[in-house]
Design a protein around this nucleic acid. Structure first.
Length: 263
DNA sequence: AGTAACCTGTGC
DNA sequence: GCACAGGTTACT
């Protein structure tokens, strides 16, 4: 499941499960997935092989021996499930299944079926315009200030904008702003230099904590106890014990401490 | 900037 | 029943 840390773990899993194996069949099991990967495109995958797996933001790129690229985006609820053998049962919401020549397979498991899987010809670039990864040194206070200048978005909205910074989603945006002690509704263009720095530090720290959690506990690492504020409405702030508030910003929940996160 | 749309599941 | 869910795009 899918912000940068979860997608990073997923990419590692496919890398280990799929690199060097030849695809014997690709099956698409849900009509909405067929829009991105029609049966004919899926059929053309047989005989090809996965030679490299990259992650950029929340996107995964599976580079094929033919030079083509499978672009995968999990959206809200996608995840990879590895099937070690022919008799391993498919996960309950398998949407796309890639079988390999050693009889293992990977399945895209996605209850809401919002994930995207698309196949691209060798020279195509499937990625949309993205800012630097949240974990990249290129994502720094100067970059953030420049990308927010002249806009009226709240800082929470700016962090969710993948053209500003890639990989942050609704959970980690709230977490990063708690660390930065900044109210999610503050207009991003109006921050002080120190506040831009605090936001960037908050983002890096949030990513590092989540990546460490992912490595230790895998996909089950996302419990409310893991977070400073996300999903903890009414529970005490971990700094000052003030009850955490939930508000809606553009139909998405933001969680914050009304006492120690300033406007 | 806000809202619907894409889908299905869960919990109140 | 309704609100809500870790995302993104395309419309007012």
């Amino acid at each position: 499941m899918p912000e940068l840390p979860e997608v990073e773990l997923a990419a590692r899993i496919v890398r280990r499960a799929a690199i060097g194996r030849t695809i014997t069949s690709a099956r698409v099991l849900h009509p909405s997935q067929r829009r991105g990967l029609p049966d004919e495109a899926a059929a053309s995958l047989a005989g090809d092989a996965i030679v490299a797996v990259w992650r950029r933001g929340k996107h995964q790129l599976l580079r094929l021996k033919s030079g083509r690229t499978l672009h995968v985006h999990f959206r809200m609820t996608g995840d990879w499930v590895v099937l070690p053998s022919r008799c391993a049962p498919l996960p309950s919401h398998a949407r796309v299944v890639l079988r390999f020549d050693d009889r293992s397979a990977i399945a895209l498991d996605d209850p809401r079926a919002l994930s995207n899987v698309t196949l691209h010809e060798p020279k195509a670039d499937p990625l949309p315009r993205l800012g630097p990864d949240a974990t990249s040194p290129s994502f720094n206070a100067r970059w953030l200030r420049e990308r927010c200048a002249g806009r009226r978005v709240a800082i929470k909205g700016a962090l969710l904008d993948q053209r500003v910074v890639a990989g942050i989603g609704n959970i980690h945006a709230s977490e990063a702003l708690w660390l930065a002690r900044l109210d999610p509704r503050v207009v991003a263009a109006g921050l002080t230099p120190a506040q831009y720095r605090a936001v960037v530090i908050g983002v890096k720290r949030t990513m590092a904590l989540a990546l460490a959690r992912q490595r230790r506990y895998g996909t089950d690492a996302n419990e409310p106890e893991s977070y400073f504020v996300y999903g903890r409405e009414g529970e005490p702030c971990r700094r000052c014990r003030t009850p955490v508030r939930r508000i809606l910003q553009g139909a998405r929940s933001s969680y914050f401490c009304p006492r120690c996160q300033r406007r």
